[in-house]
Amino acid sequence: MKVLLKSTAYFNAERIRFLGDDGLCKALVLENFPNIEMVSEAADIVFLPKNAPYDSIKDFFSHENAKHNDTMLFYDAPHSSPKNEAIWQTLKAHQKVTVTIDMFYCGAVFFRREQAKEHFKIRI
């Protein structure tokens, strides 16, 4: 959660989307960023909780207005289960994804068209 909150501040996010039901996370974000807008379309940050169904990823990528060039998708616990690992690998391989940052406990996914495809692993 600390990484999500720091990323929200660093990227000056104004709009956030949650791809799943994570009431505690929503409450923490609103507590720290009371002016942030919760949306269901193009957002600056998209939060994917570890218990999100696989269909939420397919749905996210099927809508062109779900993201913009500077959107960051934040994935909670990509290595916590075989299902989450499969979702993480699918995210990394997607043609619209240009950069992924694997921080083990969480992952960041970017869609910047002007950037070459790269994958990073860092320890936090």
Rank of each mutant, 00 (worst) to 15 (best):
Leu19Met: 10
Glu37Ile: 00
Met38Val: 01
Ser80Arg: 06
Trp88Gly: 08
Asn12Asp: 08
Val3Glu: 09
Glu114Gly: 10
Met1Ala: 08
Pro78Lys: 12
Leu73Gln: 10
Leu24Lys: 12
Arg112Ser: 01
Arg15Val: 05
Lys2Pro: 05
Tyr75Ala: 05
His68Leu: 02
Glu64Phe: 09
Ala116Arg: 13
Ile16Cys: 03
Val97Ala: 14
Tyr54His: 15
Lys121Phe: 05
Met38Ala: 02
Lys26Met: 13
Leu24Arg: 10
Ile45Phe: 03
Asp22Asn: 15
Ala116Tyr: 09
Thr8Ser: 15
Asp59Pro: 03
Phe60Thr: 04
Asp70His: 07
Phe110Lys: 14
Ile101Ser: 12
Thr90Gly: 02
Ala66Leu: 04
Arg123Phe: 00
Leu28Cys: 11
Asp55Arg: 15
Val109Glu: 02
Val29Leu: 04
Pro34Trp: 01
Val46Phe: 02
Ile45Arg: 07
His68Ile: 04
Val109Leu: 09
Lys121Gly: 00
Glu64Arg: 06
Glu64Pro: 02
Val29Asn: 05
Asn65Leu: 06
Val99Phe: 11
Val39Tyr: 06
Arg17Asp: 09
Ala116His: 11
Leu5Cys: 09
Leu30Gly: 12
Asn65Trp: 03
Asp102Val: 03
Val97Trp: 15
Pro53Ala: 09
Pro49Tyr: 00
Ala77Lys: 15
Pro34Asp: 11
Met1Cys: 10
Pro82Lys: 14
Cys106Phe: 13
Lys83Asn: 11
Thr71Pro: 08
Glu41His: 09
Met38Pro: 00
Tyr54Cys: 12
His94Lys: 12
Lys67His: 10
Thr98Ala: 12
Phe47Glu: 04
Lys117Arg: 10
Pro78Arg: 14
Ala9Gly: 05
Glu85Gln: 10
Lys117Ser: 08
Phe11Pro: 11
His119Asp: 02
Phe120Pro: 00
Leu28Met: 10
Gln89Arg: 15
Asn12Gln: 12
